[in-house]
Design a protein around this nucleic acid. Structure first.
Lengths: 201, 201, 201, 201
DNA sequence: TATGAATGAGACTTCATTCAT
DNA sequence: AATGAATGAAGTCTCATTCAT
């Protein structure tokens, strides 16, 4: 219990520091101080600095995967599901900027082995989205297209906006405010066939 | 003259190494060997390692900006311009994966000061795209929308696919092959108003 | 009782690990796992890691000292006693390579204080041997010589062979097989006066 | 030139420290200070701390090997050759205690890989001695015996005495003074056949 | 101009030891 | 008595940068 709390504190501290200063520019000393643990203490919970990053990403990916699964159980129309995914993304963004920021682009930095592991995690998200899109196509709720391309395009589309939104300046705030609505519109135009749009009205 | 050639060699070597191993994991020694210059020699052309990265990004951003400017002079319909931008992106991808890969995501790694500089460069691209979109809206060639959101969404959309495309596996090849066509379709559905689509036929 | 058993297990585990990986390269965690005790548990029986090594060496030295004492009580001719010492060394070698290996050369590794303590133990062995040799000289069973030099030469002679014998390769096996007999021959030639040799026939 | 001098200084400093405090208890910081170089500087000449030890041992082994080769060219009787080897060993001992002390027993401490490398070097010495002994046997100058056993026994015999001789106490001084003569006597009795002994008179 | 030896701060990680439970 | 989480000093090594040549 206490142990898990400590691990949580380490992860939280590391996520914040990684997001602000980057993975390499964040030292174990900084993490240990931010988490209120000794340096050695960190190594009881994580075998290495890279493992901390892996834990952060894994946690976040798994949260999203279970969100997707739960969403799917509700049997909503696929366009509505996608709308909710975008909403979730922005909601999570506001409550936890650090980790969200980390999730996407930090994984170029570490060692090849870790990059590979993180990519594998990330892939699960894309695969899950691709499957969702294919189901939508089969149900006539989404226009036929290459679902793999679409999945990565969808992820990139949302990320492209959220990344910039987190800069903390005026443009960022605009994107944060307008983002969800605008993106939903874009996605509807892109993904939903005309007759479905009519029906959606 | 010789100097500029050497600087080019340094930039090329550094770009390749940064893209493959990351900024921090690439040492000056490795760059100097790959470029065939002495370590001291590098410091005649670049004040620091970060300046090399800055030069790489600046060069690439400027190439794209001048491409955009040239494109604009041709007075094509905006959707056609966007199509060509996507094409250009993929073309450049194939001929120079390293720098393209670098352009987008490496900028989390370096120091805050450099990050800021690179972000500023990057912003120019987004601003230019946003302006193009607004012109398209004004001309009725693009559906009305928040041009800033749209610009970042557009960039992210393309990047989301190209990032994954560069992994070098089977999925990557599929994306590389299908990407341009699929993305053009997506963009047409998203950006072009129905009546224009008819006209485009 | 249970305590002593545990202490024995710790000593045995530590001896094996020290012999295989060296004193410094063996961690308390490794010892605790190999002995099936918790780290804290080890500290109930030994004040420090160095005390474990000291205990190992002390035990081994004392075993040899009592062997020597018992041998002396049997009133054998000195050359025969020496022959039995060599035999004992090789016998112990086969049944407990680890500790034998440790006994001789590990003592350079630890701290000055411990080195001194181990050296003192070791010295007892040499002194005992020197005394035996002097008795042999007095009895005319051993050629006159500097008994101190002879004692250390004798120890080194045997160790030189056994050290190499423990490498585990083909040469090692040869030495292990030929060692006792060859060494006995060498020692006879070296130590026993001609007339005694005749008598020994 | 300067470079080699610096490397020599590093080796000398490291040898002294390794001999006095042991390999593991000697830090790179200590070596750098003792050698008057920065820590980083050491790494221009040696890839790692272990490479320093390897260089020390290699140098010493090679010095002895070339001594042996040169000795052999002089076509002396084998017993005389062996006498000179013992003399050389003691002479080198007095002029460079540190390295001599290191040569023999430090190699249990480092990593398995290094231990293997050092053992291989060491083996050359033994092989060279064994060959010398076999030549002596063939020439009737040495009593027939297993030359491998004899070589390791010979090395151990000398080492056993010199190791103890280096302790710096009264016993050590005695061994240092009496050693060469006593050992030569021992070796003559051990190795030289009776008729040769007569002849040697 | 060009070199690369030298610097030394700082990186990650290990480890013997302690102590609250 | 027994545990093992926690400590933090010290370990080896890397690296961007400098400067004498």
């Amino acid at each position: 219990m206490t142990q898990e709390l400590l691990a949580q504190k380490i992860v939280a501290a590391a996520a914040r520091l990684f997001a602000h200063h980057g993975f390499h520019r964040t030292g174990m000393r900084a993490i240990s101080q931010a988490a209120g643990v000794s340096i050695g203490g960190i190594y009881h919970y994580f075998k290495s600095k890279e493992e901390i990053l892996l834990a952060i990403v894994r946690e976040e990916v798994e949260a999203r995967l279970s969100f997707l699964e739960e969403l799917r159980r509700q049997d909503l129309p696929v366009p509505e599901q996608i709308r909710r995914i975008v909403e979730m993304h922005f909601a999570r963004l506001e409550e936890n900027q650090d980790i969200t920021q980390l999730l996407h682009h930090q994984w170029r930095d570490p060692s090849p082995l870790l990059r590979q592991k993180i990519t594998a995690l990330y892939e699960q998200l894309a695969a899950s989205l691709a499957q969702l899109i294919e189901e939508g196509i089969a149900a006539g709720q989404i226009v036929p297209c290459n679902s793999t391309v679409a999945a990565y395009a969808l992820i990139g589309l949302v990320e492209g906006v959220t990344q910039r939104a987190l800069a903390g300046d005026a443009v960022g705030e605009e994107l944060l405010k307008e983002g969800p609505e605008q993106l939903t519109k874009i996605l509807t135009r892109w993904l939903v066939p005309p007759q479905e749009k009519e029906a959606a009205k």
